[in-house]
Write a protein that binds this DNA or RNA. Structure first.
Length: 560
RNA sequence: AGCGGGGUAGGGCAGCCAGGUUAGCCCGCCGGGCUCAUAACCCGGAGGUCGGAGGUUCAAAUCCUCCCCCCGCUACCA
């Protein structure tokens, strides 16, 4: 074990008002959580931060639509977002918000420094302005006719009919998508970030990240080499968001894409101040070169995390850069791409109404889109839960504990002399812990899950071979061994299935909290004579009727 | 169009970067065993032109070239 290891873990900041779906869990929050939990068990100092992203222009507009202020909209959704993560056992050390004063302060300090270092300059740009709504409109909120093919109802600067790209101002017969009135073009001074000066530095930073996932590494390098970074405007005229700290930028805020990444820093400061009670503590993470920063995101976020975020941090100069950006692909649904607007999606809050969080976590880890897009299928969900989680893992735990409880008087027996097979079984559980460790370190969570299952499978095979039920006299040694394996299984599966691990600890009457477990406990031995509690099956099976019902519900909702 | 990822038994995947035992794993299927366990568990078996065509090599799923198919990306929706 590396002593004094420090790890900072981030998961993509969710938009405050967009609920989280299964793909978000499988692609970011769960892998990050497994990683964070594992590292804590290894004795590392871990801070796992997240929070809602509340300053996007789409939030301003969504609030307008609903006749609310952005603040009211965010206040309404924040507890909902937070609750879903809590129920799923996502072990954030802080779940902050980018509307908090600490975030505004971080953004202000950050950009003031960039200004002072000469990375920011003013420039006049043209933007759409809706005189009726009295706001500047992002391109996407301007509807009009394609200047190339004449297709009506196109958004922004790309035509979905003919696929051509054009200047947003070329669009014919523009209308504000909110009120349908005609927007005008206005010129205004905005502030630009000199990203063009950072291409080489970012490339230099990325070059040696050969251990990143292949797609992540290649895409990032290719992007930088082929296109490089262009200067970009970072201010907007909104009354919602962190104020821009530049001279002459009164009334302007820092644009969402340029400030939300700093939410990781402000969340850590929020944690230091309000959870730890030591306002300086965040520095021992963001300003310590020995800290490894892991960012977990979906592929839609790649540019921002592998290119833009490092560029910003390099420009600033005092903070550490991501050590690994763990990028996941997408989870499709029953063979089709997700579409939240069409209702083609599996929401986490709905799953939680019906399923054990560990059941959800299991399936999310089992189909985590690590190297390619994967598919959520209800039938597959039932097969994997019933066959793997329950049939292999749950059944192994339950048959061992229930046998011990009912046939051995509820007491871990005193083993007799161990044969080769018994010794082997005991050492195998340690080998599995080592293998799992390697997989998690490499951020290969699916392989890790398989390793857990393999240990249960070996335990099942061992139990069948030893058949303790056939000869009570010879049952003591194998049952003793099996109880050790079950305990190890609970320990090593704790990062994936924390609630289940806790139940096993309780059935085994260990008096331990799962949060107290250390990785080395996988090698621990429960002493003979230890009394266990009455075990219950860990999970409930998913019926075929239920699968049909879920599929039916999905299609019914789609019709609307 | 360019770039990136992928195309391996009925389905889902690993192996490919550092070429070399009978190409592994899970599900399903077939046949056995067991009965402690949530009809769960264990063992065995059938099933593969490793997208296609060339090439390099003593040897290629693994390296090179070309082609076909699927998916994604190309910063003003962050």
């Amino acid at each position: 074990m590396k002593l004094g290891e420090k790890v900072l873990v981030t998961a993509a900041l969710p938009y405050s008002y967009a609920p989280r779906h299964f793909g978000h869990l499988a692609g970011a929050y769960l892998p990050a959580d497994i990683f964070a939990r594992f590292k804590r068990m290894r004795g590392a100092e871990v801070v796992y931060v997240c929070g809602t992203d509340e300053n996007a222009s789409s939030i301003v507009i969504e609030a307008m639509r609903r006749g609310m202020t952005p603040k009211e909209l965010c206040d309404m959704y924040y507890p909902i977002q937070k609750e879903v993560f809590e129920k799923l056992g996502i072990s954030f050390d802080i779940f902050s918000r980018t509307s908090k004063p600490i975030h505004y302060q971080v953004v202000r300090e950050f950009y003031l420094r960039l200004w002072e270092k000469g990375y920011v300059y003013p420039k006049v740009i043209k933007q759409w302005w809706c005189p009726n709504c009295k706001i500047f409109l992002p391109d996407r909120f301007v509807v009009g006719t394609c200047p190339r093919c004449g297709a009506p109802g196109q958004y922004g600067d790309v035509c979905e009919v003919c696929g051509s790209w054009y200047e947003s101002f070329e669009i014919i017969d523009p209308k504000c998508s909110l009120c349908r009135s005609r927007p005008e073009i206005r010129e205004k001074t905005h502030f630009f970030l000199k990203l063009s000066a950072l291409t080489e530095k970012v490339l230099e930073y990325v070059r040696d990240k050969k251990f990143w996932r292949k797609a992540t590494y290649n895409k990032t390098i290719a992007w930088l080499e082929k296109e490089g970074l262009r200067d970009k405007d970072i201010t907007r005229d909104y009354s919602w968001g962190p104020p821009a700290p530049f001279p002459g930028a009164e009334g302007q805020v820092i644009y969402n894409w340029a400030e939300n990444l700093l939410g990781y820093i402000s969340a850590t400061r929020d944690w230091a101040e309000n959870i730890v009670g030591d306002p300086e503590r965040w520095k021992s993470f963001w300003m310590d070169k020995n800290v490894k920063l892991y960012c977990f995101i979906g592929k839609d976020n790649l540019f921002f995390h592998t290119i833009l975020f490092p560029a910003l941090l390099i420009a600033h100069g005092e903070y550490i850069l991501p050590y690994n950006v763990v990028v996941n692909e997408f989870v499709n649904l029953e063979g089709e791409k997700l579409s939240t607007s069409r209702g083609w999606v599996v929401w986490l809050h709905e799953l939680l109404e019906r399923y054990d969080p560990d059941v959800i976590r299991y399936y999310a880890a089992a189909i985590a889109p690590e190297t390619r897009d994967t598919d959520f299928k209800w039938q597959d969900f039932a097969e994997k839960i019933n066959g793997e989680l329950i049939g292999t893992y749950g059944n192994f735990v339950h048959r061992v504990l229930s046998f011990t409880y009912s046939k051995m008087g509820g007491v871990i027996p005193q083993p007799g002399e161990m044969d080769k097979r018994d010794e082997e079984m005991l050492s195998r559980r340690i080998e599995y812990a080592r293998m799992l460790e390697e997989h998690i370190e490499a951020c290969e969570f699916r392989k890790g899950l398989r390793t857990i299952l393999d240990l249960a499978q070996e335990g099942n095979a061992y139990m069948n071979e030893k058949a303790p039920w056939s000869n009570p006299e010879k049952a003591r040694t194998p049952v003793y061994v099996l109880c050790q394996v079950v305990y190890s299984l609970a320990v090593i599966s704790a990062p994936y299935l924390p609630f289940t691990a806790q139940r096993i600890l309780d059935y085994m009457n260990t008096g331990k909290r799962v949060s107290e477990l250390r990785w080395s406990d996988a090698e621990a031995m429960i002493p003979p004579g230890h009394r266990i509690n009455e075990p219950k099956p860990l999970f409930r099976k998913i019926t075929s009727e239920e699968v049909e019902e879920q599929v039916r519900k999905l299609f019914e909702r789609l019709k609307k």
